[in-house]
Amino acid sequence: MRVLLIEDYRPLQQSLTKGLREAGLAVDTTRDGQEGLWYAMRNDYDVIILDLMLPGMDGLSLLKKLRAEGRQNHVLILTAKDTLEDRIKGLNLGADDYLVKPFSFEELLARVRALLRRSYREKNPEIKIQDLRIDLMTQRVWRGRDEIRLTPREYALLEYLAMRAGQMVSRTDIWKHVYEFESAASSNVVDVYIGYLRKKFEQLGRPPLIHTVRGRGYMLGPKA
């Protein structure tokens, strides 16, 4: 799940980036409105977290341009402005959610996750695929009655595959949505993490869940 954070206040930018990454999200970040728009136009972000008062280009103008270009990314506005008028203006311009500073990080995370589920039309915070159960809120995973402990990276990969369960997911898609913009592109990393997940899922001789579509990518669960 790939998120773009556009926030000019450095302490907030740094802590949010850290928190979101630790929560298993791939985060790209910038402090300038122009640059933010550039990022948003060149990548397919699941959620954009947008501050309103930005150097370069203010948040509302950025949002307007983004929508004018036909981009349908989910946008969460983050701002110190809290009047009803400001909220309505933001939502009218096509924002999906609005959070007033200062906010609780857990609330931001919950809202970002809700937007991510909407990205994949998944309203239920719990996903079940055969005997695999994923709680999107607590990020815990079970196979049958046994809980499987995953690292944030492994979880991020599983969550993305689960959101598109039954579909073929290409390595490029996985790379785009799970790994960060700045990190060096290497499809090998995807294969390595898929290997980790398989190993954990197929302990005690359980049947495989992740299938390889030769030459194209991977698929979680039975075909849709």
Partner: peptide, 11 residues
């Protein structure tokens, strides 16, 4: 700045 302090501490 309050948002900065809060999110830094919470994270």
């Amino acid at each position: 700045p309050l948002a900065g302090i809060r999110s830094t501490i919470e994270v």
